[in-house]
Simulated assay, not measured.
Amino acid sequence: MELLLRYLHFISVFTLAGSLFAEFFLLDNSLSKKQIKQLSRIDAVYGISALSLLIVGLSLWLGGYGKPTEFYSQNPTFHLKLGLFILVGLISIYPTVFFIKQAKGNQNQKVDIPKGIIWSVRMELIILSIIPILAGLIAKGIAIF
């Protein structure tokens, strides 16, 4: 069971990162509603992978698979990692709501993308890139503070 959970965790991480990179590369200052609809679908994959990652991660932490729950619970680096993951999720709300609202209507109509959407996706990528470093430290039992 642990092996299956770790595999699902791994796949969720790569799906999340891949979909976020796709959003980053597809975003532009102006997009058609058709392109925004495509971004909305990619964002849905992103959201599903984030939810999967959270559920599997919590199962690994609290389910008693692998290392004891205390190993993670007592490591402040783990709490930082979890906090950053939650922060990425909170930041992602703004682009998600924008994509859903703007995907409706004439598919050829152009929409100006607010700078905040572009910067939100950039911030998500920056924060997301820190999490694997923290995961490596946690695996070694290293607390950074």
Rank of each mutant, 00 (worst) to 15 (best):
G136M: 07
G83Q: 09
L80Q: 05
E2M: 11
S49F: 02
S129G: 09
K37E: 13
E124A: 11
K110V: 10
F24Q: 08
F98K: 08
I144H: 06
G89M: 03
G83S: 14
I36V: 09
L84P: 02
L87T: 13
I100W: 10
I130P: 00
V56H: 00
V121T: 14
L87D: 02
F14E: 00
L3N: 15
G83V: 07
H9R: 00
I100E: 02
K104A: 13
L137N: 02
G57W: 00
Y72K: 08
P95V: 09
Q102E: 13
G47V: 04
L8A: 11
K34R: 15
L62V: 04
L60H: 04
Y72Q: 10
Y72S: 09
G116Q: 15
F14T: 00
I144A: 01
I144K: 07
M1Y: 14
L60R: 05
F98C: 09
N75Q: 05
F98H: 11
I48L: 11
A44R: 12
S129Y: 06
I131G: 02
M1A: 13
Y46N: 10
Y72I: 10
L80G: 04
L80I: 15
L39H: 02
E124C: 11
L31I: 03
I36E: 00
I86L: 14
F85G: 07
I93K: 11
L84M: 08
L80H: 08
E23M: 05
W61A: 07
S73I: 03
N29M: 13
I93Y: 13
K33I: 12
V88M: 06
I133E: 01
P76M: 10
K115L: 15
S40K: 14
A50H: 02
L5T: 05
P132N: 04
G89A: 05
L20K: 01
S73M: 14
S129C: 08
Y94I: 11
G47N: 07
S32N: 04
Y65H: 15
F99P: 02
L82I: 10
T77V: 09
Q107F: 05
A103H: 11
N75K: 04
I100L: 12
L84G: 03
G64D: 06
K104T: 08
L58I: 12
Y65K: 13
K33R: 15
G64W: 07
K33M: 10
K67M: 13
V121S: 09
W119Q: 15
